[in-house]
Design a protein around this nucleic acid. Structure first.
Lengths: 348, 348
DNA sequence: CCGGCTTATGTAAGCGCTTACATAGCAGTT
DNA sequence: AACTGCTATGTAAGCGCTTACATAAGCCGG
């Protein structure tokens, strides 16, 4: 029976009370039939479900949230959706969480720490009960604010040894050390580096550190004119390779790139400059995008399973929500994919 | 002052009542200070805001939603986040909506109509007040269900002339007619087509229709052995080009692809087969991804401003939410980007 | 200086649901 | 037959907020 007076704002129109009346039970039983079916006798449950279907009723989440103090909302903070790496992470996370009835709110920081803090605040205000956050370099106090609310969280994409936060990801520094090791073992001694903006980005900073550390172990260092920082795009890769190769002094024999887009740009520019890869120059990428195995030559890069990051982050949060207190997840492995863009430097 | 008895579940702990007490006003004034600031005297507003800050209070959305029957939630239904095209659409939509205090829920259908219907149901149950939906080929009754709830919606990415739905997008059929026209004008008469799965996908179906219609106007048709349907990936583009070129009978002089990934695959395979592009074969893509201008030869393709689709869809919905009844938006223009992968067929 | 108007604030009734507690009904024990 | 201990259901009190309505306070013209 529709209520007299003010009309409803278009929602299905029935309330738990209506369902209860139709089924000949109390609203408490209706609620239990939906939220704790095992607590209500099978035939009554049937009656309630039938009544609900008939009236097109579904529990109204605001009412439920208010009474139960549960929102079934989780949030994920990423730099941007305009990047496969994060989009697929979010996709997998969402798939996993929604299977358990948890709705995901997405916040994009656009690589800006203030926006990140704002998004987190907004999500908390919306009542998220768990948070997945890309990276750990954020405004001081952000994690404390979250923890103070009793909201479980997990850092994704990076897994820094010694980090105080639970995190699902890989060790960015170790991954770049592995790339460096590969090139060092091939005999390279002169390196270039093209990388994306490192400000507020612990992943990129860790990668740079990993590379520098591996070189330092061999008594090597990067010359400033061989290091370029800029937008993670093909065009900047091209431009950077040219600038590195045109710099005065000895040319590097290997150029390490912060991601595949930069590496593809470097590859394209090398070809344009008549520099042969891998004979004259080795180039490495990071991410293993679909294009990486199609370039000429195919690109040596590091593969990361972003969907798996999303899934594991979801699982971790779900465990927290279930009231258990899971151990911090172990790091994921990234995988060095050796292709033809790297080889020993030619003698001389 | 914290309530006696049961502890709060970790949220900030204050209620409107506490803020009201601290500020020496009523809860109604607190509410108004936040939701209709112009209705409360400046100095009182200040006091309330100060009290709220002091207590770390923010309105609890569940309570607000229940009382006001407004959720400030919108939903967007896309096939998948694992595609730049949709990810950037969503990103822009979200940016615009969140500027107006609307939170976006994202549902992915994974190109499956049942999942799409489920996602929409879930979002409606969550109380979304507006919906943006990619494409219009959905389960019968889906749009009616939405409309019956009084929820405004907008179809995105496609804009079919004669569609009953408001939509922000471009005319896929016309876009492919334009591509066909370009190739026909160059003198091509034998066409191949490589496209992504068309089931439940009106955008792809419209493109195919557009191509066929343009050819039909010239009395031309596609030979079945020159049409390939499969995953929208580089690998399928390669495989398809080979199969088309190896088919018995005359080879096509132009291969039209459903998106850039397929076209890049076709380009790569042409090179592997020793087929010169554009001398022996013209190839076209769709989307104008970053890679399209970097291929060899650079790819002729159609550019679509996905972020603009997201923004306009957001604006349309916002207008609806403001209670006005906007006219159906006009179609967006897609732009043919002529590069070196198309040319007149060589004589003979 | 009073009546009527406008405007700022308070009062209190819910919004639709969940859940602690009360109750009733039933089976098994003694 | 009376009692205990279950379990299945009902009762009713909120969850935290908004908002229609009531009220009080100022302002103006006559």
């Amino acid at each position: 029976m529709a209520r007299a007076g003010k009309t409803r704002n278009g929602q299905s129109g029935a309330r738990a009370l209506d369902v209860a009346a139709l089924a000949g039970v109390s609203t408490a039983t209706v609620s239990r039939a939906f939220n704790a079916p095992e607590k209500v006798a099978p035939e009554i449950r049937e009656k309630v479900l039938k009544a609900a279907t008939e009236l097109g009723w579904m529990p109204h989440p605001a009412g439920a949230a208010l009474a139960s103090r549960r929102t079934w909302l989780a949030g994920v903070l990423i730099p941007t959706l305009d990047n496969d790496v994060f989009a697929s992470q979010v996709g997998a996370l969402q798939t996993r969480l929604s299977a358990d009835g948890v709705t995901v709110l997405i916040g994009c920081s656009n690589y800006d720490a203030d926006q990140a803090a704002n998004q987190v605040r907004t999500m908390l205000a919306r009542g998220v009960e768990a948070l997945a956050i890309v990276g750990e370099s954020h405004r001081p106090g952000m994690f404390e604010t979250i923890a103070a609310r009793g909201v479980p969280y997990v850092v994704t994409y990076s897994h820094r040894p010694g980090s105080p936060h639970p995190s699902v990801g890989f060790d960015n520094a170790a991954a770049f050390r592995r790339i460096a090791r590969h090139l060092l073992d091939l005999g390279h001694r002169d390196f270039g580096l093209i990388h994306q903006p490192s400000i507020d980005n612990d992943r990129v900073m860790a990668r740079i550190e990993g590379l520098r550390a591996a070189l330092a172990e061999e008594g090597l260092a990067l010359r400033p004119q061989h290091v370029r920082e800029g937008p993670a795009a093909i065009a900047f890769g091209r431009e950077s390779l040219r600038s590195i190769m045109e710099a005065p002094g000895p040319r590097p024999t290997a150029v390490v790139c912060g991601n595949d887009a930069l590496a593809i740009g470097a590859l394209l520019e090398a070809r344009a400059l008549g520099i042969r890869v891998p004979e004259d120059l080795s180039v490495t990428g990071f991410d293993d995008v679909a294009m990486a195995e199609q370039t000429d030559p195919p690109l040596t890069t590091m593969r990361v399973d972003n969907a798996e990051i999303g899934r594991q982050a979801a699982d971790y949060l779900l465990t927290c929500l279930a009231g258990r207190n899971p151990a911090h997840p172990p790091p994921l492995e990234s995988q060095l994919i050796l292709r033809a863009s790297t080889a020993a430097p030619s003698a001389g």
